Computed example of a mutant assay.
Amino acid sequence: MTKRITLANRRLFSEEFKQTVVQDYERGQFSVLELAKLYQVHTTIIYRWIQKYSSYNKRKIKVVEMADSSKQKLKDLQKRIEDLERAVGQKQLNIDFLEKMIELANTHYGIDIKKNSDTPPSTGSEQTSKH
């Protein structure tokens, strides 16, 4: 009987990558759980990296995270994403409306607003003088 040897899928991470992950954790940008999901690495591995590379966490000091604060942070980020998506959607509606108005101005009045080069560009805060 022959023994079949299979190699597990192992990923190797550079020291620089590990240190970057730890720095993200130390800055409070992500929790360990969030980093694990983001990079698809088990939390145990990230805790090892923290033990090895962290300037705050030394040996024999246990890293403790508040689960509730991580959950709240994730909820806050999800709400922020929803708010931004809503804002982008509203801006897109405005763009669509303005493009339709430009099209109607061209169709009904023969004004090609997009190609009118006689109009000086607006700076937004200054009044333009009339010729």
Rank of each mutant, 00 (worst) to 15 (best):
T2E: 11
K3G: 09
K3D: 12
K3H: 08
R4Y: 01
R4W: 03
I5W: 07
A8N: 04
A8E: 02
A8I: 06
N9S: 05
N9D: 07
R10D: 08
R11S: 01
F13T: 01
F13A: 05
S14Q: 04
V22Y: 09
Q23V: 06
D24N: 14
Y25P: 13
E26L: 15
R27M: 13
R27T: 05
G28T: 04
Q29W: 08
Q29L: 15
F30S: 11
V32Q: 09
V32S: 09
L33G: 12
L33M: 12
L33P: 00
L35N: 04
T44H: 06
I46V: 14
I46K: 06
Y47F: 15
Y47P: 01
R48H: 11
W49A: 15
I50V: 11
I50K: 08
I50G: 04
Q51P: 07
K52L: 15
K52R: 15
Y53K: 05
Y56P: 06
N57F: 12
N57A: 09
V63S: 07
V64M: 00
E65P: 10
D68Q: 10
S69N: 08
K71L: 08
K71I: 03
Q72D: 07
Q72V: 15
K73D: 12
K75A: 13
D76G: 07
D76E: 04
D76T: 10
L77R: 12
K79A: 09
R80M: 13
I81C: 02
D83T: 12
L84F: 15
L84N: 05
L84V: 12
E85G: 01
E85C: 02
R86K: 05
R86P: 03
A87K: 00
V88N: 02
G89C: 05
L93Y: 02
N94V: 03
N94Q: 06
F97T: 08
F97A: 02
F97H: 02
K100I: 01
E103C: 14
L104K: 06
A105M: 14
N106C: 12
H108Y: 05
Y109R: 10
I111S: 02
D112N: 14
D112S: 14
I113P: 02
K114F: 10
S117N: 02
S117C: 01
S117F: 01
D118I: 11
T119A: 11
P120Q: 10
P121D: 07
S122F: 14
T123Q: 05
G124L: 02
S125Q: 01
Q127H: 08
T128Y: 01
T128R: 09
K130L: 14
H131E: 04
